[in-house]
């Protein structure tokens, strides 16, 4: 235990030499965290997400008896029970909603509450406002995703009574990491809209529109474009074009973070997935069927990870640049 005088002296020293940026960022980060945790809308989505995850766990456990997988523990996350989708597909679909809820009124809310002027007039760097918002959202997402993922595992463990291997734990960890980045992408995107749109409702609509487009319609658009570029209507066309058609379709789909994420986590959580691209009969020739090792699976989705991180950074950078360039001015 430090003597009090020394402690005080140390604190004073830290206060004097701590960069102003850190002071402002810390205060804003704490405030944002508190705001989120207290807010009705966050509590609402938390309950929604918890209910759906446990429902999917219930479905998975009831469907588990038919499973032939050697990775029983992972199956809890990937198996869909009768009429209840798996935890994986639930998160892929609902995760963006969490990110959007946390970010859509980030800056526009401050503007409409007229608090932005007051905050901007304090001795802080302007970027700490948006950094604080993103970091608070990202931390909350991280905590939420890991708590949820681990609690599903814990409950599952009690129910099935079958412990996971180290490899399975590692796979679950990577899966949760992907989930965090995926949801942070949506947080960044909704923050971007909250900077660009002055109205919280417009910003929410824009984010939700993109979410629905990427989750539901992107595959239709991709197959349509692929069909136009490489038509496969006649047998002749099929002979020549089907490979290119499929490859283009796949690559277009991968523009959508929803698809990218789904593909990556399916590969990670399902060791029997051996390739994410088109596999021809030739390349399968002589192959021995078996499971991929952990690092092999990770290697397979490395580009996906890079892509998702890039998308997340792109949206956050976009919101950062827009916010910094935007003039705080009188209306």
């Amino acid at each position: 235990m430090l003597p009090e005088s020394l402690e005080n002296a140390l604190r004073k020293f830290a206060q004097k030499y701590a960069p102003q940026q850190a002071v402002g960022l810390k205060a804003l980060y704490e405030k944002e965290m508190m705001d989120h945790i207290r807010s009705r809308k966050f509590q609402m989505i938390l309950i929604l997400v918890l209910i759906t995850s446990y429902a999917s766990l219930y479905g998975a456990i009831s469907g588990l008896s038919d499973s032939t997988s050697e990775y029983l523990f992972l199956s809890m996350y990937t198996t869909s029970g009768n009429s209840i989708p798996s935890f994986l597909s639930f998160i892929a679909l609902l995760g963006p909603f969490v990110g959007i809820i946390l970010g859509f009124d980030g800056i526009s809310g401050e503007k409409s509450d007229r608090t932005l002027y007051r905050i901007a007039a304090q001795p802080i760097y302007r970027d700490s406002i948006i950094n604080g918002k993103f970091l608070a959202g990202a931390s909350l997402i991280t905590v939420m995703v890991f708590v949820m993922g681990i609690s599903i595992g814990a409950i599952g463990l009690i129910v099935i009574g079958f412990p996971p291997t180290v490899e399975e734990v590692a796979r679950i960890f990577v899966f949760l990491l992907f989930t965090v980045i995926y949801i942070c992408f949506w947080l960044g995107l909704s923050l971007l809209f909250s900077v660009v749109c002055n109205n919280a409702a417009t910003s929410a609509m824009a984010s939700i529109g993109l979410w629905i487009f990427f989750s539901l319609f992107m595959s239709l658009v991709a197959s349509m474009i692929a069909g136009i570029v490489y038509p496969v209507n006649t047998q002749m066309q099929q002979l020549y074009n089907s490979y290119a058609n499929y490859a283009l379709d796949l690559n277009l789909n991968r523009i959508s973070p929803y698809y990218l994420y789904s593909e990556a986590v399916t590969t990670i959580m399902n060791p029997s997935v051996r390739s994410v691209n088109v596999v021809t009969m030739q390349s399968l020739d002589g192959a021995i069927s078996g499971y991929l090792g952990f690092w092999q699976s990770v290697l397979l989705v490395w580009p996906h990870l890079a892509g998702l991180i890039a998308l997340m950074l792109a949206t956050f950078t976009g919101s950062y640049v827009c916010f910094m360039r935007q003039e705080i001015r009188a209306k």
Binding site: G24, A27, E30, K31, D35, R114, Y117, R118
Partner: peptide, 27 residues
Amino acid sequence: GYLPDNVGFYTDMTGRENLYFTGRLNG
């Protein structure tokens, strides 16, 4: 110190909490 026209506060925080927050922003 700047008092903007039609000043706004964080509506789900109390008056005191709003002041504390400003104090923290000023280090």
